[in-house]
């Protein structure tokens, strides 16, 4: 399907510049899929190369960010399919990373949020990340995930409810702090953050 059309050098340079500008976003998305930072960077690098190789098939004028996110997501799931055992290991690594992310400097509420996110089914997590953090419209997220817009909407809303439930109940294995503490911290933090803007 990939047309090996020659791009003129200017278009190619533009494409490269745009692709490089997207790398930080691809890394962030990969981090939410993999959990483990090193595995996430491997995934993001593979996606960058794949996008570069497929540059001739990119339709100029369409959303390049969504296009590269779709490539990264496909890469992630095809690797997972290739080796179930590996993905199991990734899962374990992700959980270790999440639990081990006890940087005393890091705001507590972010740790709690990462833990709570890790408990969501992956399709809910990715939908929420794309729409809630990646800045994609429902339609774009649907294209990235290869599903219907309505499906994305319902995944996002289920993810939001589940996340809130987990944070309020404190239904994760941590340090035995009172339930609801995480939600209070998040509320206070969010208030502080929005006050800064």
């Amino acid at each position: 399907m990939i047309r090996r059309a020659e791009l003129n050098p200017k278009t190619e340079a533009d494409f490269k510049r745009d692709l490089v500008a997207l790398i930080p976003h691809l890394r962030a998305f990969a981090r939410t899929l993999c959990g483990d930072a090193a595995a996430a960077d491997d995934l993001a690098q593979d996606a960058v190369l794949k996008a570069w190789d497929a540059r001739a098939s990119f339709q100029t004028g369409t959303n390049m960010k969504a296009w590269t996110f779709m490539i990264l997501r496909n890469q992630f799931y095809s690797e997972k399919r290739r080796s179930w055992r590996q993905s199991q290991l990734d899962q374990d690594a992700a959980e270790r990373t999440l639990v081990a992310a006890d940087d005393p400097e890091a705001p507590v509420a972010l740790d709690e949020l990462r833990l709570a996110l890790a408990m969501l089914p992956s399709e809910q997590r990715e939908a929420l990340i794309l729409v809630g953090a990646g800045g994609f419209a429902y339609e774009e997220a649907a294209e990235i995930c290869g599903c219907a817009v309505g499906t994305v909407k319902s995944r996002v809303s289920r993810a939001r409810r589940a996340l809130q439930g987990v944070l309020e109940r404190g239904a994760y294995d941590r340090d035995g702090r009172p339930a609801g503490e995480a939600m209070r911290t998040i509320l206070a933090d969010a208030e502080r953050l929005s006050g800064q803007r």
């Binding site: 890394r27 809130q164 944070l167 969010a190």
Partner: peptide, 20 residues
């Protein structure tokens, strides 16, 4: 309000990696 707060933190989490 709670959902709004979660949204703010989600973006913060994502943006933290973006700004690395």
């Amino acid at each position: 309000l709670r959902q709004q707060a979660i949204g703010v933190k989600l973006r913060q989490m994502f943006d933290q990696v973006v700004s690395e």
